[in-house]
Design a protein around this nucleic acid. Sequence first.
DNA 1: TCATTGCCGACCCGAATGGTAGGATTTCCC
DNA 2: GGGAAATCCTACCATTCGGGTCGGCAATGA
Lengths: 155, 155
Amino acid sequence: MTIFSSKAEYGVRLMVELGRQEPGRPVSLKALADAESLPLAYLEQVVARLRKAGLVESARGAHGGYWLARPAEEITMDDVVEALEGAIAPMECFVQEDTERIVCSHVGDHGQACATKLLWTRVQGGIVRSLQTTTLADLVAFSRRTDPEPAAAPA
Amino acid sequence: MTIFSSKAEYGVRLMVELGRQEPGRPVSLKALADAESLPLAYLEQVVARLRKAGLVESARGAHGGYWLARPAEEITMDDVVEALEGAIAPMECFVQEDTERIVCSHVGDHGQACATKLLWTRVQGGIVRSLQTTTLADLVAFSRRTDPEPAAAPA
DNA sequence: TCATTGCCGACCCGAATGGTAGGATTTCCC
DNA sequence: GGGAAATCCTACCATTCGGGTCGGCAATGA
């Protein structure tokens, strides 16, 4: 089984690529698609989610493009993945309320709260914790270690 | 997004129900299906996975049924979920080799190991750790807290 | 004015999910 | 021996979803 869809993979790669660029200058989606060998039309849908979540900003028209809305150090992967995949719920019956609250709708079958709730809660905790403690800057630094060349944006 | 399918939900509930029973006596799938209000025919497929993974054993014929192959204390939810959902990989490009080894097939696009690897590895670690540190006995105890009645198996 | 780029909605195809149906086959009980 | 009660096994099916494609509109700079 795979946990995340390719939206998450593409979106994270896109964010990393943006993090590698020097800030203040927009990068066209075409350049990003070429750099990562990803289909441009599909990336449009992916980046739209990131924009609606306020993680990237954009400029239209010639020499337009995208850039990070905040410095990479202040972006936790928790936000990125949630923007791309939606709220992280281990199971359908988990509905996220406001903050940290978790509700299982299977309560009430015969008065018994389902025991699986305990398990899924722990799993969710494990995932969210690992996402929250990783910033985009971490990934950018990791990518520079293997490929120090910045992708030479010929805007 | 939901992480696990209903196979995991049903299978875990089934294991918990088996854990609530006194050992040594087989419980019919029909009784389990009734206790959890789940479709019998579908549960057959679910329990087949648990049996093939060696987590439950079975006896055919009248008064046959299922029981835990090991005491609940010795069953980690890691094993249960893996039997039900298959190997846990955060992303398609993760292929589990023999033990703990993780490989990302996206290496080589332009010599750059994908930075997402770092992230997915951490996430997988968070999940596996939470599953390994929870035993079936934990869930059984949790379920008894809310519903102390053992489900009165009328064989 | 025109190329470049972001933005948006419709459509589409294959695979997986969540089942159902039906028939073996084995075993206990009378 | 004959049911009845069970596990087992395979095939099938409806719907959803993932992973895209396509076409067109809107805005912006040269």
